[in-house]
């Protein structure tokens, strides 16, 4: 669906058109799920984050400004949901007591089960991974990534440039 169509559906959602939530959820959920998976979330966690993102979107739907692109607005909220989840997970893990047998892998990261693109992204620092994911998975433009990350186009370009330089290094180091 084109960006302008999404904008119109979002406006209808704000006007409580009963058809709008379904259209938006069905259109945007696959790429949101992939965004969370690319950020190294397990499938189970990605599903939780997806649900939480939509509930948050619903709660703050009045903060979408008609005429503005929807995707940066959606991804800005999704980013925040992911950060909150990360903090919550870290806080819980800090309060947990030691166990006799440690799990073989951290619960949140299932690197071995991730597809190729996600595995490649795992080698990047978080901020660079996020920018490349938004550009490649979300299909956002530089301007939209800057909006979604409360950054500037220059800063996004710089991060993307460093990310691709690092990816080249990783690919050369690889098997």
């Amino acid at each position: 669906m084109a960006g302008e169509d999404l904008d119109r559906w979002m406006e209808r959602y704000q006007r409580a058109d009963p058809e709008a939530p379904s259209v938006l959820v069905l259109t945007l959920s696959p790429q949101l799920l992939r965004f969370f998976r690319s950020q190294l979330a397990s499938r189970e966690l990605a599903d939780d984050l997806l649900q939480e993102t939509w509930l948050r979107i619903h709660r703050v739907r009045h903060t979408y400004r008609p005429g503005q692109p929807v995707l940066p607005w959606v991804y800005a909220i999704a980013r925040r949901v992911r950060v909150d989840s990360y903090r919550r997970t870290r806080r819980i893990s800090q309060h947990e007591t030691g166990v006799d047998v440690l799990p073989e892998q951290p619960a949140q990261v299932e690197t071995s089960s991730l597809p190729a693109f996600e595995t490649l992204m795992a080698g990047l620092p978080e901020s660079q991974r996020e920018v490349v994911t938004l550009l490649k998975v979300g299909g956002l433009s530089l301007e939209e990534v800057a909006r979604a990350t409360s950054s500037t186009v220059g800063a996004v370009k710089q991060k993307a440039h460093r990310a691709y330089a690092r990816l080249r290094e990783l690919l050369e180091e690889g098997p």
């Binding site: 959820v25 696959p30 799920l33 992939r34 599903d47 997806l50 939509w54 490649l120």
Partner: peptide, 22 residues
């Protein structure tokens, strides 16, 4: 590598229905 067409994972229908219902 960056254009690798990894199989896109679709959200489960049950989850989408639950989101829509809520």
């Amino acid at each position: 590598a960056v254009n690798a067409s990894a199989p896109a994972e679709a959200p489960s229908a049950a989850i989408l229905r639950d989101i829509e219902r809520r």
